[in-house]
Design a protein around this nucleic acid. Structure first.
Lengths: 208, 208
DNA sequence: GTCTATAGGAAGATAGAC
DNA sequence: GTCTATCTTCCTATAGAC
């Protein structure tokens, strides 16, 4: 029994800072949105998911819009550590690329909800706050640029096509294939496309 | 002056069959959704766009859900005549591919709204009626299969990679690049990616 | 079929006691 | 800061006169 509990009832005791609540609400929002879709993620569902009363919402966030911005920021941070491990090991150039694509794909299939959520949030942002959609997309592009650059550095290759184009190409294929799979759930077809793409990318570099 | 107008006032005269109204409402819905987004396309906005009173809605459609299904069906039909003209002329195999990609791209840039709408509708359907998302996607896939098949027939080539994989690859790239462009509006970057992709596809066939 | 008026509910946001 | 109760608004859908 602590000092405070001797003098304050449970109800009187402030159990959590507003900052901690904000964080919990953002994570609860991500769970609700993954499960129910962005359109159905009401403030009521979100606070219920976090086990808090409705009134909490508006002294943690000025508006639902503000929560959505923080959700997008949180998601960006979370998805930056899935593919890079594939860059270890000492296989051939193409093998590393194929390994990276398969690692990404395993990551998608294991837990698809966040990826679907990302599409929905970008869609949503395109209508309501285009700047944050651009910012989010730029972060993803940058991850792809880094992967391609580190890849050539490690293996002593250089790209014969501008890395900027390849990064965009890679991101487009990844998103296109993922979206396709979210619709038809055809895993083999998705892997076949990624493999064909990997062959092409591997042909866009030469030993240095 | 017609026979009916001599006996019926404007208000009494039924000016339009319910079927015609349905068609007008579907087209109005497409315009509103393109402009405001699917989430903001309320029945009120849609009937206003069509210049009809609100009450019309529910003797033309059982529910908003039913309208959405018909909107998806209508959009599918509309987008099936953009790329095929590129298959005329007698250029080289790769030139036809590059021409087809550029034709598609011109089509997107000239009028992006329907493409953005398609993404949103598929997203929406993924949550509420997965079967119609699958159906819609299958129709798009089929268009890509046809394009690739006709292409080899005309030029006397054959694919060295399963046409099914190439069709999926093509669709993934097209959708990925389009989505990317909807976010950042970088036209040159999009064209560069499509061209690089075209080079790859062209290398997946040989003369027969 | 066609329209006006309104039911009925759920959303985001706030008021005000503690 | 915290919570309950409530306001306001806007939605889809229906009732019912014509």
């Amino acid at each position: 029994m602590t000092w405070t509990s001797a003098f304050l009832s449970l109800d009187d005791m402030p159990r959590m800072s507003a900052d901690d609540r904000r964080e919990l609400l953002v994570q609860a929002a991500i769970r609700v949105m993954s499960r129910e879709g962005v359109a159905n993620a009401t403030t009521r569902l979100i606070v219920a998911e976090a086990g808090m009363p409705l009134g909490v919402f508006h002294y943690c966030f000025r508006s639902k819009e503000e929560l959505l911005e923080q959700v997008m920021a949180a998601i960006n941070e979370q998805s930056f550590e899935a593919v890079m491990p594939a860059l270890q090991g000492n296989e051939s150039f193409e093998q590393i690329i194929q390994g990276g694509l398969r690692a990404y794909w395993a990551h998608v299939v294991r837990d698809p909800a966040p990826h679907q959520l990302t599409y929905e949030l970008t869609q949503y942002a395109l209508r309501s706050a285009p700047e944050s959609a651009i910012k989010q997309y730029d972060a993803y592009l940058d991850l792809n640029r880094k992967f391609l650059t580190v890849l050539t550095e490690i293996t002593g290759h250089e790209w014969t096509v501008p890395v900027e184009s390849l990064a965009r190409y890679l991101l487009a294929v990844i998103e296109g294939v993922t979206f396709q799979w979210l619709v038809d759930a055809d895993n083999d077809a998705a892997l076949a496309v990624l493999e064909e793409f990997g062959r092409h990318i591997a042909g866009c570099a030469k030993p240095r």
